[in-house]
Design a binder for these strands. Sequence first.
DNA 1: CGATGGATATCGCAC
DNA 2: GTGCGATGTCCATCG
Lengths: 249, 249
Amino acid sequence: MTLADGDGSEASDGSDASLDPETARDRVAAAVEVGDMVTVFGRCTVEYEGRAASTLGPGDRLVVLKPDGTALVHTDEGQKPVNWQPPGSTHAVDVSDGQFRVRSRRTAPDEQLLVAFERVDRVATFDVTDRRDRSLTGTEADLRRRILDDPDLVEPGFEPLATERETPAGAVDVYGEDARGRTVVVELKRKRVGPDAAGQLARYVEALDRDLHADAEVRGVLVAPSVTERARRLLAEKGLEFVSVAPPA
Amino acid sequence: MTLADGDGSEASDGSDASLDPETARDRVAAAVEVGDMVTVFGRCTVEYEGRAASTLGPGDRLVVLKPDGTALVHTDEGQKPVNWQPPGSTHAVDVSDGQFRVRSRRTAPDEQLLVAFERVDRVATFDVTDRRDRSLTGTEADLRRRILDDPDLVEPGFEPLATERETPAGAVDVYGEDARGRTVVVELKRKRVGPDAAGQLARYVEALDRDLHADAEVRGVLVAPSVTERARRLLAEKGLEFVSVAPPA
DNA sequence: CGATGGATATCGCAC
DNA sequence: GTGCGATGTCCATCG
């Protein structure tokens, strides 16, 4: 682990020191070159142009540059960055009009982020390695496993025949038959569903109605922990069903 | 601006020094107490439990704590944090088994994030103020303004009567009449649209078909830069129309 | 609070 | 690359 300090001359537990623009540029340039992660804190303006366009007046912000090309601009509030650049972008730095600037660009689509610092309070760089072995539970995949383990949760006698079965309208989560041999389309949602899920299920059912024999009856079942009132009405109108099942704890 | 250094004893441009857990705890605690933004760099494990549940093995990561209660855990890759806690959470710190730990909790829904550091390389804190005066263009709102300024972009003679008009299926983007007095529902999308947008528009048209007089004819027009092939078929099946218009540059 | 739909959504997967 | 759907989506807005 290599650490580059923002200002080694500061006191041990606090400082008002700031970096001059050339020093900031050189430290960030060296870190980006070697593939380190970089954080910059200071007062800056931000401009973005690409899929949309935005400008941001002066303020104190935290800028993060990752070795994969990601750039993030965070303010004191909110979980989402106020501006950003996706992975795969290329970071460049310079000093212009006495200001340290970070530019991050990518192509396809063409996008550019420009951060200009009126003042740089701190630059820190890190040599990062991560194991990337995150395990996550409570997802739609967990709900699918639960349904396949115990198809009676959908209804007694339900028999799954395929997952991700393709239809002209897209892939159906679970495809199967009920106790009387009728085709059943199951759409899974890990949490409470709104009207969009009802429409999605309706598209699958309509597509299979057309694809299968004209005499075939296709049932559509939405499986989720709960459903909004508007979605419940939509399901009823379209002759679709709802079953309450949540992902396993 | 107050800055608290991670380790004031390090050399001016690099160091392998790390903080002992108690020092890290005290500095982060003081910063969170006073409402500063905090960044912590080091090797840690992460556990989350709430809407879902996840665990993350040891790795080098950047942790950001914001004064609004947001917590972010970033690895060397990706634009999204690998773990996080939403605004409104409460951050707490301690030392357990010789490890500096950050816990962030919230209620409704109950969620908790736990970060345990095997090693802390750096702690930095910042007193942040931001102007929050971002301006953004190229949005759906811009496309709506463009359509209202020049309704002929939808079709000659189109006359907008309302925006965000409420229907039983939700609010319609633009509601109006064509040259022959027929009701027109316009759904706007700032970029290329898929099947979901076609379904959304269909819901609005069906809802208005029912709400208005039985003899009324309701047209549905999707306005977007372009449309996928599957969405185009869906629109055709449902008797809906597509007009290509992009948000203003 | 919940409901609804937009977003520079991001992300992963299939084609 | 585009298309499609999930996401601990986040977020503003409205009731």
